[in-house]
Design a protein around this nucleic acid. Sequence first.
DNA 1: CAAAAACCTTTAATGCTTAGTGGTGTAAAT
DNA 2: ATTTACACCACTAAGCATTAAAGGTTTTTG
Lengths: 164, 164
Amino acid sequence: MNNYEHVLVALRRVIRATDLHSKRLSKNAGLTGPQLLIMRTIRDLGEVTIGTIADKVSLSQATVTTILDRLEHRQLVYRVRSTQDKRKVHAHLTESGADILSRAPNPLQEDFIKKFQNLHEWEQNMILASLQRVANMMDADDIDASPVLDVGPMLKDDGWKEKA
Amino acid sequence: MNNYEHVLVALRRVIRATDLHSKRLSKNAGLTGPQLLIMRTIRDLGEVTIGTIADKVSLSQATVTTILDRLEHRQLVYRVRSTQDKRKVHAHLTESGADILSRAPNPLQEDFIKKFQNLHEWEQNMILASLQRVANMMDADDIDASPVLDVGPMLKDDGWKEKA
DNA sequence: CAAAAACCTTTAATGCTTAGTGGTGTAAAT
DNA sequence: ATTTACACCACTAAGCATTAAAGGTTTTTG
């Protein structure tokens, strides 16, 4: 196993751990990580459009839309179509949403950061630099995606079902 | 914005970039990143159980199960219940699966690694060390998940639907 | 043997992406 | 000015990935 593979395995572990971490927190609040993240964004930025939220949290508009659907269903947020530019929709926290958010743990700070505080400052800096390096590298990733194979569309149903 | 937040933002970027990268490759092969990863694992390890695959690729058994369902549906892999231990199920590549795999790009090596080779060796080592540090930290994450709030279950349907 | 553990699958819910739709805004061309 | 073309914004649809929790066998343990 060479260096590259080690890096990739480590990356996988981080990603997985981050997800689990997010899930665990979500249980406490009844809200998932992305949900809290979006609510925090709405709170911090005030009257904010779906597109802006998507940019801030690095998610697609489609994802933000569906997450807002769920939050709106629980009456934690509400949407208002802009009168200035009728293409836009502004998201707001409801009273209930703001209240819950104020008491919810912050998945992107509270716990995660506590872990980081156990490290020396130079270690923190090193990790930061490294991660940014990786991120930049992957941003620059502009592979000319020449098609290689095509095994047809992926269908549902069927499959295993040994018991039948 | 403090150091911690920078780290988290960088982490998010890496995760997102990794996903995009994986998606892009998948398009070429008609296979997604996790699918290729699992097929590679089956090829490399030979007769391998679902649980072993899950360990190797750092995914839950449930996830591996559903991915294998799709692969099996396309006849790229097949499953055989072990006769030794009837709890176990072994996954195998079909001829077609092995063939396609041999011609598919490897999302965890080919391209990603090319990027890494642009770095100095000490940089590679630094990144590796950092990522492992983060991964270890998060593995050790054993938060006593005391419930904080409960806003009830998340329901579907309903919601926005302004147009109605 | 009975209880516990192990292994896989299923179910319900969430997240996430791409592609496509429809309404809205804007600017260029006639 | 009106039309035309294009860009923008949010939503919807289809498909894949994931997990936790629950269920069903089978094996191991006490």
